[in-house]
Design a protein around this nucleic acid. Sequence first.
DNA 1: CAGTGAGCGAGCTTCCGCTTGACTT
Length: 771
Amino acid sequence: MQKNLVIVESPAKAKTIEKFLGNDFKVMSSYGHIRDLKKHEMSVDTDTLEPEYEIPEEKQKLVKDLKANAKKAEKVWLASDEDREGEAISWHLCEVLGLDEEKTSRIVFHEITKPAILEAIEHPRRLDMNLVNAQQARRVLDRLVGFKLSPVLWRKVKPALSAGRVQSVAVRLIVEREREIQAFQSEPFYSVSAIFAITNADGSQTEVRALLDKRLKTHEEVEALLEACKDAQFTIDNVTKKPMKRTPAPPFTTSTLQQEAARKLGFTVSQTMMVAQRLYESGRITYMRTDSVNLSSLCVNASKTEITRLYGKEYSKPRQYHTSSKGAQEAHEAIRPTYMDATEIEGTSQEKRLYELIWKRTAASQMADAEMEKTTVNITISGIKDQFVATGEVVKFDGFLKVYRESNDDDEQRDDEYAHLLPPLKVGQTLERREITATERFSQGPQRYTEASLVHKLEELGIGRPSTYAPTISTIQQREYVQKGDKKGTERTYTIDVLKGKIIAQKTRKEMAGSDKGKLLPTDIGIVVNDFLMEYFPGIMDYNFTAKVEQDFDKIAEGKEKWNEMMESFYQDFEPTVEKTMNARQEHKAGERILGNDPKSGRPVSVKIGRFGPVVQIGTADDSERPLFAQIPKDKSIESITLEEAMELFKLPRELGDFEGSAVTIGAGRFGPYILHDKKYTSLPKGADPMAVTLEEAIDLIKQKRTEEAQRHLKFFAEDSKLEILNGRYGPYIVYDGKNYRLQKNLHERATELTYEECMKIVNATPVKKK
DNA sequence: CAGTGAGCGAGCTTCCGCTTGACTT
């Protein structure tokens, strides 16, 4: 007979807790929410705004199991997390399992240690219905917004689109950032650096690097300065030394872990979460979805011991951190190693690297400040007012820097090159000028978001939760509002003026400007949807919308406001706006734009988001003649495409002529332009203009493809026709039953000599990829 | 990592937060 049943949210947690509690306790997990609004319908009564819950199919078995165990138990302890969602989970459990109030207790604990759990058992409480109602309000509001707005988009923009309190604002951030970048006017300026020398007592010389204390605006100023420096004397005017301290960053939350793993390890946001999940399940780290920076006393103490052991007493400094981010609910601890004495773990290389990052961040947060001394030396130039400044930084005590330094997103830290050790310098000392270099630079516009920096921004705005950052990022990419891509930069030239001896020499160099890799870019659909929502639903799109409704949820949680009253007042304004927008007589779809008239037929040419994405259309649906369509290629935008560019799209497929008795045509496919001949496809090389390709060039490419094709099949096997050795872009590889298997580098040489057995060994040794 | 290549024009689609699961070869 089971005396006690404890229900927590996560199975890993259940396993740990069961160990702390005696045989009288059975611990089970609810696996998050057990009940929710119906998946495929509104499931909210639009008159009373009351939600209608159901137990989803995949939870039925679990609920049955929980029910049976609750019935058997003398007492049920609801131990879900101590936040809105956790309280609601407990309430749903009560309702669904039909728990008797007398034999049910609600408990919460903040860390998974034996004392903390025993302490929680000593202090049970009742369900907090105010907190539950705050969650219901949150849930219903999100459902109303999502399920009312999305159908508007289906009608006005494109089917299967979606809108929501979180995702639509995420897209807005990216669209607006792209517009800022486009509007940004880069201004040139000149930064001037100098190399001086001082002669030491032994006759040797030491270099001193310094920067001019201001940026120059024009090339004339550069010329004037260098001219003035030709015969000038450089004298040390002032030497100041300032002690500086650097404090470690707080331990990881979900958001900061995602950012650092992206910067230091190159992980995507979802990759980080998957690896962290595995570390959590194997008991290596605490829970990975958290907004808390709090560390348990257990960890603070263990860190102290470990840091003292590894680095010495002076490196240890126990600290407590407090969460300041908007909307934080702190149901968990910060993300930290479960055991600080495990500095390394077994596992995949990704697991090892992420664990090491978490260990270092946690350890650093419990270490002493770093102490530096910053030296600033002012160097006057005789005859002019401007000065050079040399700075040096000496680390007096490295403290936490011994293990960890937080990265940041600005890759431009050129000034850092000049911060280093300085030789001893005295006021009044003169310096020997070696060379002075003025380099033209350009002011930097705003940076595009990465997955991780978008998460950072969302957290800052209090939008979304640790459990939704990664899913939100993938949703906006799946809906094709945003794509991760590369932006080609433009080449620009810049000048470098160097004064060496008495001669000023000017050079020009080239660099690529504004190129970006793997950043988030808005698509045409993203832009059109954003502009549409901004026009008709500015309230929902407001960056403060979440913050405002959160205030209401807080009032509900405190019992100062009724949740259905809040819903009603929201819906009163929202619903009519939806109706009005939905039924507004539409002359054209959102984002539609007339480019002009087709020079040939005179029919109007327009662009819009069609059923299959952005299209150019000649003519209208009411014409007697059917309209013509052409997909807009990825590198063109619906916002900026011109009539001429649009008309080009209708020139394909283009017939070039005949070759070996069949037609050669140029078409445009999903993967760019191609040649079609005798039902075979040949890609055009990158950068080739499909409008300029001649029949001769096309035939050459077809022949080239044929020889490649002939050389591709290196070896067949009589034993099994499914097995082949092929030659690919990266050398020889094995194909078996339609799947590819890589050949180790050392086998490339003798690829054609491999036997059937050898190949099958490789095939069978390769693990099956999971979907 | 390993090679891809339509021309559709209606039915269905959708939210945010909690949490992990596992058709068979």
